[in-house]
């Protein structure tokens, strides 16, 4: 599966469009991480636990999107965009969408 965030796949041509595909995941952080983040909030700096959590969740969202594209018969997803929203206290939604295409 080729993933890009430009409207084509450089070096290849699009032969078929399958429309929008999307993947999303809602994650809550666990209490331990939250407490650590609370301490880290005092001194500032990177909150590694959150960085990892969001990174994993984003990968999961991309995987779901790619899975959806594969079931449509696509071999690439172009024009991928990411979005983040906090749906509830302590939980974040990570969302990825793009256009499924077949390239040659």
């Amino acid at each position: 599966m080729i993933l890009t965030n430009v409207s084509t796949v450089p070096g290849k041509t699009i032969v078929e469009h399958f429309g929008i595909v999307q993947g999303s995941t809602v994650r809550a952080k666990h209490v331990g991480r939250d407490i650590m983040a609370g301490f880290k909030n005092l001194v500032g700096g990177e909150l590694k636990g959150y960085t990892e959590l969001l990174q994993e969740s984003r990968e999961e969202a991309v995987r779901r999107m790619a899975e959806q594209a594969r079931t449509l018969g696509a071999n690439a997803v172009v024009n991928i965009r990411f979005a983040t929203s906090s749906v509830a206290q302590g939980a974040a939604e990570l969302f990825a969408y793009g256009t499924a295409v077949r390239v040659e």
């Binding site: 880290k40 909030n41 005092l42 001194v43 500032g44 990177e46 909150l47 960085t51 969001l54 990174q55």
Partner: peptide, 9 residues
């Protein structure tokens, strides 16, 4: 690439 950064007290 992503990062979460917090401000200090």
């Amino acid at each position: 690439g992503s990062v979460v950064v917090s401000i200090d007290y």
